[in-house]
Structure formats: structure tokens, C-alpha cells
Design a protein around this nucleic acid. Structure first.
Lengths: 246, 246
DNA sequence: CGTTCAGATGTGTCGTACTGATCGGACGTA
DNA sequence: TACGTCCGATCAGTACGACACATCTGAACG
């Protein structure tokens, strides 16, 4: 996936299990502080051994998502844990709509700034990468290939972040996109329909501003892009509220 | 009341082992990308079982400090790993001057935005917390108590982040400050001297703009504050270059 | 009514056995 | 000599079983 280009397609089971445990937490509707299934239950549920489950849990606890207490059980980390106290880093699964809106607000900030800086600092090669990604995205849209569209979109924003020449902003953009992708898993999902046509145009506007070396225009174009994307999510959610049972 | 789960002084072995492995990496002088001892060696070295070592390694890999490859061995994470690819969180030690500048640029972005949002969203209680923190900072400066000054400074920026009502920005601000504190450890250090007087004034300017509910003024005041702080770091570094060896 | 104690539950630790990915060296062939 | 193949060693990944130790529950007991 978006992970480091692993030499082979191999992926350790504990890593898969860690993700599955997260999904399970969401599916069971567990809230921070709630008690989780026992390690044995998880092993049975995921069809693997307790060994693997334990290693998965260690990962999740290092990421501050799960807390293990000897003699008691496993617990979904509370907010303080999720935000990453102490040496732990912050990580977090958007579970309700407010989180998604916050996440958009966060992305807006980061992407405005990376676009602004990219307009000042992008090298010719980086500029080319940005425009190529925009092209891939457009091509994916025109041919209706959703995978191409999404890959192009991701590459586009990543390329801009790279061109900002600020590794911390790169991290922020990457994490924001990752979190947003996770939230897709729990109910929201981007599609080639609807906003895709607009998105393609907006990508062009951004890359043109970057090529022109106009920081403020680039930032504004990025802001518009995020705002429109958010509008689309809003619309999609509205639809769900009308058509869904749950 | 809430019977606290009474976490007696107990600490799981895998947690201790994780720290010991980190210490071992330092003691062996291993650099990012270097190969580490095997799991069996580590178990023997730490006087524990391979199980415990494996769980410790999972924690360290989740934190992005260690990378495990099936059939090959364990490796100290390289830069890419440290930056937190994929699910990992950002975990990174600024080692050279460029990183410090980038970090300031990053902080500038985040603190401008939190200040902007705080001006729109701060509740009366949050506003009071901000002003109290600014007061503590000023008091620390006037009485020459560096610890109070630093604590007030930290509380001030954290309070603004809280008042932004965006948890992701809060995380970003916190991580940025944490990283900056770490970089202090390796050579740079804030002090009550020099910029402190200016900092106190700038804090007031920020909190006044927030109280006035003027987002752009708040953002500008925050930007000025960060810029001046950066200037001071620059000056301090200059001094070091003249007086130091290496 | 409070205290104690025994069992049940669940995480922590250990040992062992095996699988599968990777690497390097031996061997054979051109 | 150069190159490909094969084999064995190495080492992380997975599984299972057993027990230690912390914690909770409830029943027996004073």
C-alpha cells in the first residue's frame, strides 16, 4: 500500500492483525476506555494464534491506541493515550463526523502551506513530477479508472509536499491523508463520480500557480480544492443519512 | 469514587526490554541502517526469552526505531523509517541546522493556524487559561526564574492549541515543541536572556488579538513571535560558531 | 457486616518446534 | 574464468502448551 516499497509482497501476520484489531474496535463500536475482547478471543476471531495477536497488540499499544493491563484485560486507549503522552507518538482513528471535519481543517492548513512553499522552491524535476501526477489523475478520470485517479491524486499531493522542501510538513500531509484513508474504511469513500471533474480542474489550478511561482495563488487554489472536497463529503454523508438504516 | 485500577509499580518485561534494546543500540554505536544483533542474541544479552524480545522489537518498530526483515534480521531504522512511513508516527531527532530551520517553519504554520482559530473559537475559560499562562511567563521573566518562564511559555502555546478546538493541530503543535525541546538537548537551548523580554510582549500581543476575536491579527502576532524566536536561535548559533571548537 | 480465602479470568513469560524468506558458498557447466 | 543452479545456514514469523502473577468475584467464616 502506501508503505515502504517492500521488496516482496510479503506482509507479516502481526501487521495485518494489528489493522484487523483496529477495524474490529470500530465494528464493535468500542469507545475509548472500553474493554476489548481478550487475546484468546481475538486470536479465535482473527483466525490466528495468540502469539500473533500479542505482537499486534504491542504495536497498537506503542502507537497509543490500546492499553494492556496484567490480570485485567485489554482496553481501548482513552483520549490522553490516543494523543500520545510521553514518548509515544500521536495516533488516532477518526470515529465520528467532528473528527473528519477537524481532519479536513488540518489538511487545509498543511496543504496550503506546502503549496505556498512549493511555488517558491519547486525544482524543475519536482514541478514535472507534480504535473505528471495531475496528468495521471486526469487520465484516470477521463477513462473512468478509479484506481488511477486515486493513485494520481495521492501522488499529486505527495509531490507538492516534497517540493515544499520541509520534511515536517511532508509528514503532516502524509499522516493526514493516511488518517483520511482510514476514515474511508469506516464509512466514507472517495469516488470518481461527482467531485472528480472539479478535482481535476483544481489540480491544474494548483500546479499552474506553482509553475508561475505565485505562492499566494497556489495556497488559495489548494484551499479551494480542500474546501470543495469537504463539500462533497458533506453531500455524500447527507445521502447516507437519507438512504441508510444502520 | 473511581477506584483507580491501582497500577502498582509493576512494569512488563517487554517494556523494559524495549528500552534496553535502545540503550544497546547506543552502546554498540549502531547507526541508522546498521544491522542489529539477532533476536536470540538480544534474548541472551538481556537475560530474557525470545518472546519478550520479540514484543519489545514490535514496540520499537511501531515507534519507527527498528525495522525487521524476515530471513534477514533486525536493522536500526534509517531516516525514512524514523520519519514514520505508513502507520508509524513521526519520530525524529533534529540533527542538523537545516532540520531546526524546517522545524521552525513547521511550527510557524501550526501556531499561526491555532492562533487564528483560537481567536474565533476560544471560550472564556480557555481565554483565561491563555492569559494566565502569559502571566506566568511574564512573572518568570521578571523574577528571573527560568523554569517558570519555560513552563509558562509551554502552557501558553498549548492553551492556544487547545482553544483552536482541533485535536490534529494540537498534536502537531505538541510534537513540534517536543522535537524542538529534543534539539535543545543536542546543542541549542532557550534562555531567559535576550529574547525573553520580547517574547513576553509578543505573548501579550497574541492573547490580546485572540481576546479581540481578530483571527488575522492573532495569526500575524504568532508569526512575528516565531520569527523573532528563530532570529534569536540564529544569533545564539552564531555566537557558538565564534567561541566553540568543533 | 466486614474479612478472608479460593477459584476464575486474563495478561505476562518461557520453551520448543517448525515454516518460509534470504543469503552465501559449493558445485557443475559452458 | 564466468555464470547459473542448488543446497544448507541463518534468522524472523507462527503456533502451541504450560505456568507465573495480577486482578476480580463471590462464598465461607468470624
Amino acid at each position: 500500500m502506501t508503505d515502504t516499497p517492500r521488496e516482496s509482497g510479503y506482509r507479516p501476520g502481526y501487521e495485518v492483525a494489528a489493522e484487523q484489531v483496529l477495524e474490529l474496535i470500530v465494528r464493535l463500536g468500542l469507545r475509548p476506555g472500553d474493554r476489548m475482547p481478550t487475546e484468546n478471543d481475538l486470536a479465535r476471531e482473527l483466525g490466528t494464534s495468540r502469539t500473533v495477536v500479542r505482537e499486534a497488540v504491542k504495536i497498537l499499544s506503542a502507537l497509543g491506541r490500546v492499553r494492556a493491563q496484567k490480570g485485567r484485560g485489554l482496553y481501548v486507549a482513552d483520549d490522553e493515550g490516543m494523543l500520545g503522552t510521553g514518548r509515544r507518538a500521536a495516533f488516532f482513528l477518526p470515529t465520528d463526523l467532528d473528527h473528519v471535519y477537524m481532519l479536513f481543517e488540518f489538511r487545509r492548513t498543511q496543504e496550503m502551506e506546502t503549496s505556498r512553499l512549493a511555488a517558491r522552491r519547486a525544482t524543475p524535476a519536482e514541478l514535472r513530477a507534480i504535473e505528471e501526477a495531475a496528468g495521471m489523475c486526469r487520465h484516470g478520470f477521463e477513462t473512468g479508472r478509479e484506481d488511477l485517479f486515486n493513485e494520481g491524486d495521492d501522488t499529486f499531493h505527495t509531490a507538492i509536499a516534497t517540493a515544499s522542501h520541509n520534511m515536517f510538513l511532508q509528514i503532516a500531509v502524509r499522516e493526514a491523508r493516511r488518517l483520511q484513508a482510514q476514515s474511508s474504511l469506516i464509512g466514507l469513500r472517495g469516488s470518481v463520480g461527482g467531485h472528480a471533474a472539479k478535482a481535476v480542474e483544481e489540480h491544474d489550478a494548483i500546479s499552474q500557480a506553482i509553475r508561475a511561482g505565485d505562492p499566494e495563488a497556489a495556497a488559495q487554489a489548494a484551499a479551494t480544492h480542500i474546501d470543495n472536497t469537504l463539500d462533497d463529503y458533506r453531500r455524500e454523508i447527507q445521502q447516507r443519512l437519507f438512504s441508510s438504516d444502520r
